[in-house]
């Protein structure tokens, strides 16, 4: 496939076009503060998207990640508050990652262990996680976060002042996105486990025959995605400075999925790149933020995300049809 027909190229092109239009309409569009806003908005979405990318490469789909993230952030906040309110943020983060991994293992048991279809299982756990949280754990908003998390939210990587006196900043949380991308890249491309994820997505039957422990790998994929979901959740809570069991992050699930399929990952498994996913996240964030900046009502956001999902899946599907027809 030539680079021209790749999803990555298309998405990069759309981003570029978006920026040109944005700059033409609003002279302040191309500025460091805008960039910082976009980077900040991409942190949580990006971490979740990287997780979903790994699932898609393995040949599955996960629609439970935002629900999982909310459970992880809320349970962690409660635990830290109740047991060790003075706990530093790194320890709290570890707790969140552990909670997320445990919830991911629930998905893993049903999908890898019992061989159920991933969409149905994660559709089920999407409600299961949330219902469990709100029924058995609690449904009160916690706006007084533990000190460690408050400290974390104040730690800025970049801070600056505009000519007009307004401030801009980028929290250290961004480093976590960078770290997650680097770690996932290393896992996918530099470990045998990662290659096995690609192999399973390419052909599960072949993977079984060659002796890849398919179930174990699938299980680990869901645990990893869960861990990333836990991390994304706690970062989301820290940045928002509130732990909300009914957080609107839940509604971002489709944006996450949109970002990943825009980046060229296919539902059939075996394909997908981190570059593509990050470009997809960038486009989604850009669209969401710009619609507001450009004065387009918020209500059109879901239409835009919907169109992006259709575009992201439609283009490769259409291309596949064309090449198939040509080859046949």
């Amino acid at each position: 496939m030539s680079w021209l027909s790749r999803n990555e190229t298309l998405v990069a092109g759309v981003i570029l076009a978006f920026c040109v239009v944005g700059a033409a309409l609003d002279p302040n569009f191309l500025s460091i503060p805008t960039l910082m806003d976009l980077l900040r908005a991409g942190i949580v979405l990006g971490i979740l998207a990287v997780g979903v990318l790994v699932v898609l490469i393995s040949g599955g789909i996960d629609v439970s990640t935002t629900s999982l993230a909310i459970v992880a952030l809320y349970v962690t906040t409660l635990l830290v508050q109740g047991l060790a309110p003075e706990m530093g943020w790194p320890a709290a983060f570890l707790v969140a990652v552990a909670v997320g991994a445990a919830l991911g293992a629930v998905n893993g048991v049903f999908i890898a262990g019992l061989g159920l279809p991933t969409l149905i299982v994660t559709l089920g756990t999407l409600s299961l996680f949330r219902g469990f949280l709100l029924t058995f754990v609690g449904d009160d908003l916690i706006s007084n976060l533990p000190r460690g998390l408050r400290d974390f939210s104040r730690a800025m990587m970049i801070r600056g002042e505009n000519a007009d006196g307004s401030f801009y900043s980028l929290p250290w949380a961004f480093a976590f996105l960078v770290g997650v991308v680097a770690l996932t890249w290393a896992l996918l491309y530099r470990t045998m486990l990662g290659r096995q994820v690609f192999a399973i997505g390419g052909s599960m039957e072949s993977a079984r025959r060659i002796g890849i422990p398919v179930r174990r790998v699938q299980f680990l994929v869901f645990v990893y995605v869960g861990a990333l979901g836990g991390l994304a959740g706690i970062i989301h809570a820290a940045l928002a400075r509130v732990a909300n069991p009914q957080d609107l992050l839940l509604n971002q699930q489709l944006s996450v999925l949109a970002a990943v399929v825009l980046g060229g990952a296919r539902l059939e498994g075996g394909t997908g790149t981190l570059t593509g996913t990050l470009l997809g996240v960038a486009l989604i964030v850009l669209v969401s933020n710009s619609l507001i900046v450009l004065g387009i009502p918020n209500t059109f956001q879901s239409i835009a995300i919907g169109l992006l999902i259709l575009l992201g899946t439609g283009l490769p599907a259409w291309q596949a049809r064309r090449t198939q027809r040509r080859a046949a």
């Binding site: 089920g124 756990t125 409600s127 299961l128 949330r130 219902g131």
Partner: peptide, 12 residues
């Protein structure tokens, strides 16, 4: 919320 939990559990 409990019902949501039960639906999810039942589906699986």
């Amino acid at each position: 919320f409990a019902r949501e939990f039960i639906w999810g559990a039942l589906l699986i």
